[in-house]
């Protein structure tokens, strides 16, 4: 009950935010909020795997970045009229979000399925190291594409249009990002409460028992990993629009680590927690960066203290109950 109330209040705050910022004459902050929502979506997606599934993926930056590149590359080809694929059929770029964003989710999802299919054959520390290593591989693969900027990153010309409607300006993109986040949270919560989620959580708590009960643990985990990667890719597409730039940095291990921190800071196995964690971490980064150039020297030890002494995360403090993760 308290958790629902807290989620409802959070939603109200996010809905009110554009109007409040407008009234306070700080509308430029809306773009920062959009970025937070995109990361929140990626972190919530990671929570499916990390919190509910107990799979410690250190490679979700690769899916986030791949989604961003797909959206960016399609806009790039659309703007200079060149072909993405010239043969056997000519496929050009597109600005239409209804095509580009599902494409981003699809490519990231396929990548997650491929990486997951190999990584999920292993457990524990192996899984952590392998997801990290494969994400690094994707990083180098993208750097090997000089036509998309290589190490310099890709400037994204303009923004996607949604069913023909422009997403230019801060407000439209914010609403779209918020709608995507809310939709995924609703879908994720109901899926995790349904048979799929119960089986996934059961397999995390006791894999042998789940197997004995006939739960297809490997396929289940692969499905969750793929879904999670696809949603992270979608978040990447939003991010590409928000910043008009796609950096290979999105694919880096630092980004993967940051997403994990967001999940844990907010509270794993809650889906709402990672949203709070993403907003809290990015806000802390912005605030600290305003104080000193060496803000990492504050954030690093602070994170360490959080991991060592403050377990459970922020959301359970507010919602009054621990996560299902």
């Amino acid at each position: 009950m308290r958790e629902r109330l807290a989620a409802a209040i959070g939603l109200c705050l996010l809905v009110a935010a554009p109007f409040v910022l407008e009234a306070m004459d700080e509308a430029f902050l809306l773009s920062v909020l959009t970025r937070m929502l995109a990361y929140a979506l990626a972190a919530a997606a990671l929570d499916l795997v990390l919190g509910y599934g107990g799979m410690v993926s250190f490679g979700h930056g690769a899916f986030l970045g791949t989604g961003a590149y797909v959206a960016g590359v399609l806009l790039h080809h659309r703007s200079d009229g060149s072909a993405l694929v010239a043969w056997p059929v000519r496929i050009g770029g597109t600005a239409e979000a209804l095509i580009a964003w599902p494409a981003a989710a699809l490519v990231s999802g396929l990548l997650a399925a491929a990486i997951g299919a190999i990584s999920l054959r292993t457990r524990g520390v192996h899984f952590i190291m392998i997801t990290l290593a494969f994400a690094q591989m994707v990083f180098f693969l993208v750097l090997a594409l000089p036509q998309y900027g290589g190490t310099d990153g890709l400037m994204v010309p303009g923004r996607n249009v949604l069913a023909g409607a422009s997403l230019e300006g801060d407000a439209p993109l914010y609403w779209v990002a918020l709608a995507l986040l809310v939709a995924f949270l609703a879908f994720g919560r109901s899926t995790m409460a349904a048979r799929f989620g119960l089986a996934l959580r059961g397999a995390r708590m006791n894999e042998r028992r789940a197997l004995a009960l006939g739960v297809p643990v490997y396929r289940l985990r692969l499905a969750a990993f793929t879904l999670s990667g696809a949603v992270a890719g979608l978040a990447g597409a939003v991010l590409a629009n928000q910043s008009s730039f796609v950096s290979p940095d999105l694919l880096s291990w630092q980004r993967s680590g940051e997403l994990m921190v967001m999940v844990i800071l907010g509270g794993q196995g809650t889906l709402f927690g990672p949203v709070l964690g993403a907003i809290a971490l990015l806000a802390a980064e912005e605030e600290l960066a305003a104080i000193t150039e060496h803000w990492m020297l504050i954030l690093g030890p602070a994170l360490l203290l959080v991991v060592l002494f403050f377990r459970g995360g922020l959301w359970p403090l507010i919602a009054g109950k621990r996560g299902d993760g």
Binding site: V56, H294, L297
Partner: peptide, 22 residues
């Protein structure tokens, strides 16, 4: 668990990298 170890030592990396920069 390994997750806590990863996060704690990730925080250490951030700290060390910035410390060396300083």
């Amino acid at each position: 668990d390994h997750l806590d170890q990863v996060l704690a030592t990730y925080a250490l990396i951030l700290t060390f990298n910035e410390g060396v920069k300083v």
